[in-house]
Write a protein that binds this DNA or RNA. Structure first.
Lengths: 168, 168
DNA sequence: ATGCTTGCAAACCCTTTGCAGGCAT
DNA sequence: ATGCCTGCAAAGGGTTTGCAAGCAT
């Protein structure tokens, strides 16, 4: 249930990389191999990630980059407005590439950690009203729904769990 | 804009402490001085807190309790259903005492860190619909609005910031 | 040549845990 | 007396930072 038809083409990735390069140039920052590799991985991922998962994936493709550097690059990309940071749990910092300013909120599965996305115009508007009523100038918001997806209920198992008699 | 008329009376605090004691007894846990002091502080706080702020406040009142112990007590209280944990930022674990299962969401000020609360039945219902549409069994949610409150705009300063020419 | 970037390792912050002594039961 | 609790200090996990070498400009 991500974006319309996923399969980000290479053309898109290249365009996004070019945009990132332009940003770097404009800011007087250097276009390094590490920055391009990390950005490319993020653009082609098309989903949420942590610095840790990113580091693992890069390592598998023989493009190992130190976590310190990845943290620094991700920070630059957040400043560039290319990445958004999420607070899904207390001990994980998730980032997500959001093409063309497409906003959305998330539903996270308590069983398997799966993350789905949604947008609801009604909710978006109500939020603006609420902020106004409380005297706030709304700049952003974070709406996360937590629950269990169908997988565990239907199959009896999912990537993380098995249905047991005594659910905790 | 917290709960109706705040001023939690001592009577209430005592009742809540009694409830907590009962819970401890029921679970075969011990009623220790630290547990009572921490719980009392939380009940009388009537707002969001971190383990750190709690530790500081207890220290000021000459009731210093080690952070390790506070973490352990807070964990028990979450299990008892007396506390809810929030993810307002990535590097702070906030807890909140929620009397009588009163649910609410939050608006957080980016300037001063102030936290206001609200409930909107419409949003609550829409969330259930969205979860259902995506095949999820909704168990909980977290909705945080971020913005700037009136203080900084009106006074030119607030507890954390001063209005400057170049806002970042 | 210049100085931004990288990688390493150490430092940090918050949180958890092993252990021995303390206390509620 | 029993064994759960506490406090200390050490360990852990994620993130940041100082520094010297490396690389884009």
């Amino acid at each position: 249930m991500g974006r319309v038809s996923s399969s980000e083409s290479n053309v898109d990735v290249h365009r996004q990389l070019a945009a990132f390069s332009n940003y770097l140039k404009r800011k007087g920052l250097k276009i390094t191999n590490q920055r391009l590799l990390v950005a490319e991985k993020i653009f082609s991922l098309q989903s949420h990630f942590t610095v840790d998962t990113l580091a693992e994936e890069l390592k598998e493709r023989r493009n190992e980059i130190s976590r310190a550097t990845i943290y620094r690059i991700v920070t630059v990309m957040v400043e560039a407005g290319l990445l958004t940071e999420h607070n899904f749990g207390q001990n994980a910092r998730y980032f997500e590439y959001i093409p063309r300013q497409e906003h959305h909120d998330h539903i996270i599965c308590n069983d398997c950690g799966r993350i789905d996305e949604f947008v609801h115009d009604g909710i978006e508007q109500i939020q603006l009203q609420i902020a106004e009523q409380h005297g706030y100038d709304l700049s952003e918001h974070s709406l996360n729904l937590y629950g269990s997806c169908q997988e565990l209920r239907k199959k009896g198992t999912c990537s993380r769990r098995v249905v047991r008699e005594n659910r905790v």
